[in-house]
Simulated scan of single mutants.
Amino acid sequence: MHCRSCALVTSSGHLLGSKQGDRIDEAECVIRMNDAPTRGYGRDVGNRTSLRVIAHSSIQRILRNRNELLNMSHGAVFIFWGPSSYMRRDGKGLVYNNLQLMNQILPQLKAYMISRHKMLQFDDLFKRETGKDRKISNTWLSTGWFTMTIALELCDRINVYGMVPPDFCRDPNHLSVPYHYYEPLGPDECTMYISHERGRKGSHHRFITEKRVFENWARTFNIHFFQPHWKPEPLTASEPGVKAAV
């Protein structure tokens, strides 16, 4: 798969009322995450799907909503990620077993799993970019991390919709939006980001740290951010790289 232009559509509440749908659908490839729906939200998030990156924790919701998410995504590719124990092929791998079930229901489905070797590469990339070991810092890489990294391999240009800059939530007057555009009564986005970033007990996503990495990548790669629209500031001499908060 190779795309000259990609629309990477987040699940952020910043997309509500954005009217970005037509612009998103103009991209050669449209990339979505987990079970984020398009039906009923097309005006803001578009209707096309070329690639959907799905976490192991979302696979049951994908199965429940398969008529909408799978049947409506004609020709789309689905990539599933999760711990290696979920990918086992000996009957004990939850993701693998569910993918076999999905293949029986929808034999035309183009579904793939991220291999253990590739997962280790993602871990190494996180450590290289942040200086922190993912496991030691009790960090789970987010679906956004996998999606952005996969997009870098596939796309010449990436337009990201709905991703805020890393310091957005520090502003006391920041806009409050739901974490998911399709769950308007769900948790607040910045509350979710900050709680995960500061969490030390148990495993957490480091959403803000990941956004610092994405901001840094955008200085080198053809990545652009919309809704909200922002552009990374040039690094100063005292900022040689990403400052990790994990």
Rank of each mutant, 00 (worst) to 15 (best):
C3H: 09
G186N: 04
F226Y: 15
G186K: 04
V213S: 06
M1I: 11
P184Q: 07
G13E: 00
S73R: 10
M1A: 13
V45R: 07
N159I: 09
T236E: 15
H224D: 09
H74I: 14
K92R: 15
P232N: 01
S11Q: 06
R4N: 14
H74A: 14
S58G: 14
N159S: 15
G241I: 01
T220G: 00
E68L: 07
S176A: 10
M163W: 04
Y181N: 04
K118N: 12
G144L: 02
P228G: 01
S73W: 07
K132E: 03
R219C: 11
E189W: 07
I150Q: 13
V160N: 12
H2R: 11
W140D: 09
T209K: 04
L16W: 02
D171L: 03
L185H: 11
G91P: 00
S203K: 12
H229I: 11
L235C: 06
H229M: 07
T38D: 12
N71P: 00
C3Q: 03
H14P: 02
A36R: 06
L106V: 11
L63Y: 13
F168Q: 03
T209F: 11
R128F: 14
R43T: 05
I136V: 14
R116Y: 09
C29K: 11
K201D: 15
T143Q: 03
C3V: 02
F225V: 02
L152W: 11
E26M: 04
L70Q: 01
I105Y: 14
D22I: 02
R32N: 05
I31H: 11
R52Y: 10
V53T: 05
T130S: 11
F225M: 02
R23L: 06
F225D: 07
Y112H: 15
N98C: 02
L235F: 04
L109M: 13
I223G: 06
S12F: 01
S50C: 08
T236L: 13
N138K: 13
I194Q: 10
R66Y: 05
E26I: 00
N97S: 11
L154E: 14
W81G: 06
N173Q: 13
H224C: 00
I136F: 12
M119S: 09
A7L: 03
E26D: 11
I59D: 03
H204Q: 07
H204S: 04
Q121N: 10
Q108R: 13
Q121H: 10
G42Q: 15
K243C: 05
L141T: 04
R48D: 04
F214G: 01
P107C: 09
G13S: 02
S18G: 06
L185E: 12
F221Y: 13
M72F: 10
K127M: 12
P228K: 01
H56E: 13
M87F: 00
